[in-house]
Design a protein around this nucleic acid. Structure first.
Length: 271
DNA sequence: AGAGGTACCTGGCAGC
DNA sequence: TGCTGCCAGGTACCTC
């Protein structure tokens, strides 16, 4: 689930297999996802040609001729390409049968993901409308964060994880980026200087770019689009490393809760 | 308006 | 061994 690197890895994994193909059939074994899978989704998609795979935040909208299928991976959702005869497991909720003889299989044990349909401009769909810029976009800058946060007391880590501010930074990469920028995760967003926000934006871009290059982070149940694991976990510097030595100063990494989520930081390097 | 808590669902794991 | 409780990549919705 995916944070941006996991979604982008998934997109890159499936895109070459499905763009330009025709959807023969959709098999929905479980309709109860984050929101119910629309009853008429299968008939809308039948015989549609897939013209592209876009990406917005945690969503993988697949553009077809007649509209856009919005796939949200939630926390535990995976998309992968399987052979036509592959037996479904208990959490393989949806199969999309492609005319080339393969299937796009959606697996989601926790069922926080979603499959939705929109006929209009996907960016104006209710799920996507309020999303902030993507972290690798030019619009996401130190000035942007600085301006948005004057007078706000919210912890900067919670700010980073709010999709309305920036889309695609979840718990893992928020922790890593704040370490990279030397900013304490609990610091009030309104009490961070423009200069430090510029450093933070560079750190966010750096950690996401490196994670995409390594195919994301494998945590428990993430597997890339083609079933390969991500290797970024080996590069994590603070996430999940409570009590272990900070890679910069060897001070033990601390763990706290910020907005109900586990937060990891170096008490010496991050202020 | 901003900030924090709750709910959704299942699996894995630590602790008893 | 088996049960219980807690935690996990997200985010909409509710309340204060």
């Amino acid at each position: 689930m995916p944070e941006l690197p996991e979604v982008e890895t998934t997109r890159r994994g499936i895109e070459p297999h499905i763009v330009g193909t025709r959807i023969e059939r959709l098999i929905v074994r479980q309709h109860r996802l984050r929101w119910p899978v629309p009853g008429r989704l299968a008939s809308k998609l039948r015989d549609s040609r897939i013209t592209g795979v876009l990406r917005f935040f945690f969503n993988d909208p697949a553009t077809t001729e007649s509209g856009t299928l919005i796939i949200h991976l939630g926390m535990s959702g995976k998309l992968r390409i399987v052979d036509d005869g592959a037996e479904p497991g208990p959490h393989d909720h949806i199969d999309m049968l492609i005319d080339t003889g393969i299937r796009l299989r959606f697996t989601d044990p926790r069922r926080f993901g979603a499959w939705l349909w929109t006929r209009g401009e996907p960016a104006s769909h209710a799920l996507l409308r309020h999303l902030g810029p993507e972290p690798l976009d030019g619009e996401f800058s130190g000035g942007y964060l600085y301006q948005r946060t004057r007078g706000r007391r919210l912890a900067v880590k919670s700010l980073l994880m709010d999709g309305r501010t920036v889309a695609g930074v979840g718990n893992i990469y928020a922790n890593e980026a704040l370490f990279g920028a030397g900013i304490h995760p609990g610091r009030s967003a309104g009490r961070i200087s423009l200069r430090r926000y510029e450093t933070l934006v560079r750190a966010v871009r750096d950690v996401l770019t490196r994670a995409i290059g390594q195919g994301g982070t494998t945590l428990r149940d993430f597997v890339g689009g083609e079933g390969r694991p991500g290797y970024f976990q080996q590069s994590l510097q603070v996430y999940g490393r409570t009590g272990r030595a900070c890679p910069l100063c060897a001070t033990p990494i601390r763990e706290i809760r910020t907005g109900q989520r586990s937060t990891f930081y170096c008490p010496c390097c991050q202020r």
